[in-house]
Design a protein around this nucleic acid. Structure first.
Lengths: 148, 148
DNA sequence: TCCTTATGGTTGCGATTGCAACTAGTTGTG
DNA sequence: CACAACTAGTTGCAATCGCAACCATAAGGA
């Protein structure tokens, strides 16, 4: 086939990794801005809150597993969220290493308020696409997530 | 419509910002790994090289404009790439502020070698999709990039 | 020309990250 | 029971980032 292609420079605008990093960067910047408006939280805090809100009782390790954050970052985010009384950790009876995490009432309020803002960020994105395109995109992204 | 939705937690797996950040994180981690194999470069270095390779003569500012990096990061990346003799800066005659950037021969070699690795990263992604899906995805991403 | 404003790029610095080493609790095996 | 191997979570530290202040050159009036 086109052997020459490999010596041509990558055309960034059509290059998947480039497109993803640009878009993701914008999105997370906007999300971070939303977070900052809530007690000066950052993206890590938001991610932990979102993970716990979705499935209360998740452990720090669960959060690490489903999130693009490493142990250390999650550990620190959890600690400061506890300090701010947005979440609590309930130690497991059977396994002393494990701490299950739950939103406090305050944490729930903050979460919902942030969720509103973050949904709005998603809304702006979606507004650029038709209903069908939205579905197609979501399906494609899911496929990529599974495949990798 | 479904008023209740706003008090339900966000379902992360179907949430665009979440999907994007997960995927982008994986991709850039892999890209960073490729970069590191070449003189210990990092993602910023790679991005600058890629931007210059695509359009030789780009200024640092041009790179900032098309890239998810800020002035400072680009400035430092450019500086170290010059130190490594992978790129050169040619000052403009008419405008003393501007420096146009070009790959050196060495830089070109490094770029092509890295590009190979990064294309492979893209390849893994694309392998999960049919030809049509690939096109659809690229189109959707382009649309999102323009719209935002 | 002189002064104000704008632009390209650099630098300093506090905050965040990534990684690896480490602690503490648990499980499995002899 | 003792000891090795494993898992959950914490911590230290160097590297990176994001932002704002800053420097130098250029452009646009009065």
């Amino acid at each position: 086939m086109d052997v020459k292609r490999s010596v041509e420079p990558i055309e960034l605008n059509a290059f998947l990794p480039y497109q993803f990093s640009l878009l993701a960067d914008r999105i997370s910047r906007q999300t971070a801005a939303v977070a900052k408006q809530h007690n000066g939280l950052n993206l890590s805090h938001w991610r932990v809150l979102a993970a716990i809100a979705e499935a209360p009782g998740r452990t720090a390790n669960d959060v690490v597993a489903i999130t693009p954050m490493d142990k250390g970052i999650v550990s620190r985010a959890v600690k400061s969220l506890i300090d701010m009384k947005l979440i609590v950790r309930k130690a497991s009876k059977d396994d002393g290493r494990i701490g299950r995490l739950f939103l406090t009432a305050k944490g729930t309020r903050v979460y919902h308020s942030m969720a509103k803002g973050v949904r709005a960020v998603e809304g702006v994105l979606k507004a650029a696409l038709s209903r069908n395109e939205q579905k197609a995109l979501s399906a494609l992204l899911s496929k990529l997530m599974e495949a990798t």
